[in-house]
Amino acid sequence: MTRVVHEFAATVPRWSPYVTPVELDKATPEQRDAMQITPSSKGISPYVLTLAHDPESLKVRSPLFNTIMYGKGGLSSAERELGAVAASIVNSCVYCVAVHAARFNQLTKRPEVMETIFAGGVEAELEDHHQAIFDFAVKLSQSPPAAGPAEIAALRDIGLSEIEILDLILSASIFGWANRLMHTLGEPVRD
């Protein structure tokens, strides 16, 4: 039986949309282009098919997301994932948390960090380095954004450079975008 997932975890559920996704064989050329469909494309996810309702946004958001999360240099991949998870905890995007907690675990082999975050939520107590990154991303993700000079100073204290802090701002912020799609247009389920 299918059930909706409400708990934070690092095992990735299935995403079930609240609106009817675009049918692949009825997609317009513009929608197909935005979904980056090639002759070798196999399963296009329900999420991408849902976003194909607005191909102009999808076409620019996909490369923006990938460049922020997977671009070269600057903040480490694991720390970008930590920023992504912090935003997703604030916005309660269970699906986003699962995907990016799993990536963090894969990169760091330290699942206890995410276990602490799942248990403590935005109040989670972490080691200093992770704490500074997590707290900044949590505060930036609040509405309105609540990060201030103290959180920036904490990032400098743990030794982050200008571009590393810039990358953290970007990775937390792009999840302010992703969470508002994933958490509001569908729900995580287990079959």
Partner: peptide, 18 residues
């Protein structure tokens, strides 16, 4: 339009945080 609205809201919130 529901998807368009979500993208609009999501973008403005991204932009405000950056």
């Amino acid at each position: 339009d529901i998807v368009r609205l979500a993208e609009l809201a999501a973008f403005v919130n991204y932009q405000a945080r950056v």
